[in-house]
């Protein structure tokens, strides 16, 4: 039996909103030691999502037997919208489940809502992704990155990112003209989360599909900062750290033909 209780429904609500436009059907893998993990690839096979929710992400977590919960994220999103952000959220499944039970409890305990969501058998490709060294790592406020990705998409379908020793340059060029945004490394002593950190082994020049970057920045509601790891001609890693877990996106770059 699985029973995972979140202190507030808002984490799960924001997670599903962050990924449901990229992938529709996902297997949620549940285990006592690892908590809930998920790996899913978008239909175009350009963007991969990897989620880890350690047991520590939950107020209470119990999983007697390893389970795979095949879920339609559109449906899960509909159910999650029934609960308030501040509600306790508990996910419950039997050992060989056909359904996932989603329970919201008002913190004042005067209202309990229960939904049963049908599970599906989902045949999905799983890719092996090993930790690797990247040419550079950038950590910046996730809202700053979201603004650049959204603004620059209005100019072009592609966003070029150039990283040098102490600056990151975003460039877009399209039918109406060109644009660039340069951000420089700095340390904000008052609020560390506002700092911009650039670690560079080698300068990087990569281009990504603006559509995918716009999907990725939907996760900026989950973490105040995002870490971007880039290497020339290799998929980039965008990581949003969660309390006791992470949401990572791996995005394949574009190349010049």
């Amino acid at each position: 039996m699985l029973e995972g209780k979140f202190e507030s429904a808002s984490l799960m609500k924001r997670l599903v909103e962050a990924i449901k436009d990229s992938v529709k059907l996902c297997n949620f893998n549940c285990s006592q030691t690892k908590g809930i993990t998920l790996q899913a690839i978008d239909d175009s096979r350009v963007l991969l999502i990897s989620l880890k929710l350690d047991p520590g992400c939950f107020e209470g977590f119990r999983c007697d037997k390893n389970l795979v919960l095949g879920l339609d994220l559109e449906s899960l999103s509909k159910v999650l919208k029934q609960g308030n952000n501040e509600d306790y959220l508990t996910l419950i499944a039997e050992d060989a489940p056909d359904n996932l039970l989603v329970v919201f409890e008002d913190p004042k305990k005067d209202r309990i809502s229960e939904f049963s969501l049908k599970l599906m058998d989902i045949d999905s490709d799983v890719l092996s992704i090993e930790d690797m060294d990247h040419d550079c790592s950038i950590t910046l406020p996730s809202s700053d990155f979201a603004k650049v990705a959204r603004d620059m998409r209005t100019l072009s379908e592609s966003l070029q990112i150039l990283v040098t020793k102490d600056s990151v340059k975003f460039m877009a060029s399209g039918p109406i003209g060109t644009g660039s945004v340069i951000i420089k490394a700095h340390t904000d002593l008052k609020d560390g989360k506002e700092s911009i950190k650039i670690d560079l082994n080698k300068s990087v020049n990569v281009t990504f599909g603006a559509k995918y970057l716009n999907d990725i920045v939907k996760a900026s509601t989950l973490a105040e900062t995002v870490t971007i790891k880039l290497t020339n001609k290799i998929p980039a890693l965008f990581e949003f750290k969660l309390q006791g877990g992470y949401l990572r996106y791996y995005l394949a770059p574009k190349f010049d033909e």
């Binding site: 690839i41 175009s44 096979r45 350009v46 963007l47 991969l48 490709d125 799983v126 890719l127 092996s128 992704i129 592609s158 281009t207 599909g209 290799i234 998929p235 791996y250 394949a252 770059p253 574009k254 190349f255 010049d256 033909e257």
Partner: peptide, 14 residues
């Protein structure tokens, strides 16, 4: 012209 790489070009199916 920019063409999109596919993740399958980089990672192996398990």
């Amino acid at each position: 012209k920019n063409t999109q790489f596919n993740l399958m070009d980089f990672y192996e199916l398990i």
